[in-house]
């Protein structure tokens, strides 16, 4: 006998993500999920974004790592609320982990919530967390051919940060080739070349993010 199921495999994750989405909308919190390889500069990008936008927005951070609290501690040193999620081996964040982390934050006091996903170019693409935007960071030393090997993350990102741009002369990074593959995979995503630790190029990324935050405010007040 045949049973018709027609069910999303990640149904549970998606239902919880939609609950997160409703909560974020109700509280007026803009959520960005940062995805990248280990060491590409996610935490550095978060710190640079905090420096650029803390006068305009109340910011909080969720740090996802397999183990340790070091990234959350780095954020807290700057007087920004941060919650560490340890996935205990899991290679990506899921919406139930976000739900638990969010319960430790006062969403009424937050305009922008930045999520650092687990360092991984594969899994985070499959898991909607209830965020407003997924953003992908590639660092120059990883090489310009990464979009050929990990296309999905470039396809779903709403913006791509090309980090460690200060090292572009040291590596054989073909920027033109990189930009053209990213454009073929995803013509909507802008590419921001920047150096998170030195600050060059951070302004353009921060302005893009601020614009997205303002857009989401106007579209929710129109509803």
């Amino acid at each position: 006998m045949e049973i018709d199921l027609s069910k999303r495999i990640l149904d549970r994750n998606e239902r919880l993500a939609e609950e997160n989405r409703r909560l974020f909308e109700e509280k007026g919190v803009f959520v960005v999920d940062l995805m990248a390889s280990p060491g590409a500069g996610k935490t550095s990008t978060i710190l640079a974004t905090i420096a650029a936008l803390r006068d305009r927005y109340r910011i909080a951070v969720i740090e996802g790592d397999i183990a340790s609290k070091v990234d959350a501690e780095k954020i807290k040193e700057h007087g920004i609320p941060a919650v560490q999620i340890n996935t205990g081996g899991a290679c990506h964040l899921e919406s139930d982990m976000i739900q638990r982390a969010v319960s430790a934050l006062d969403l009424e006091e937050i305009d922008l919530l930045i999520v650092e996903n687990v360092g991984n170019l594969v899994c985070p693409t499959e898991f909607y967390l209830g965020e407003d935007a997924k953003v992908m960071i590639l660092s120059v030393p990883e090489g310009h051919d990464k979009p050929y090997k990990y296309p999905a993350i470039f396809e779903i990102a709403e913006a791509v940060i090309l980090n460690k741009y200060d090292t572009v002369g040291m590596f054989d990074f073909d920027e033109e080739e990189f930009r053209s593959v990213v454009r073929r995979l995803n013509h909507r995503a802008p590419v921001f070349a920047m150096s998170a630790t030195k600050g060059d190029g951070v302004g353009a990324w921060a302005e893009w993010l601020a614009l997205r935050i303002e857009d989401s405010k106007t579209s929710s007040s129109e509803e």
Partner: peptide, 17 residues
Amino acid sequence: ENIAGRELLIDSLEIDT
């Protein structure tokens, strides 16, 4: 715009009762 290729679905089962 993408219209297919991102699916992850359980379609059906064949069972014995």
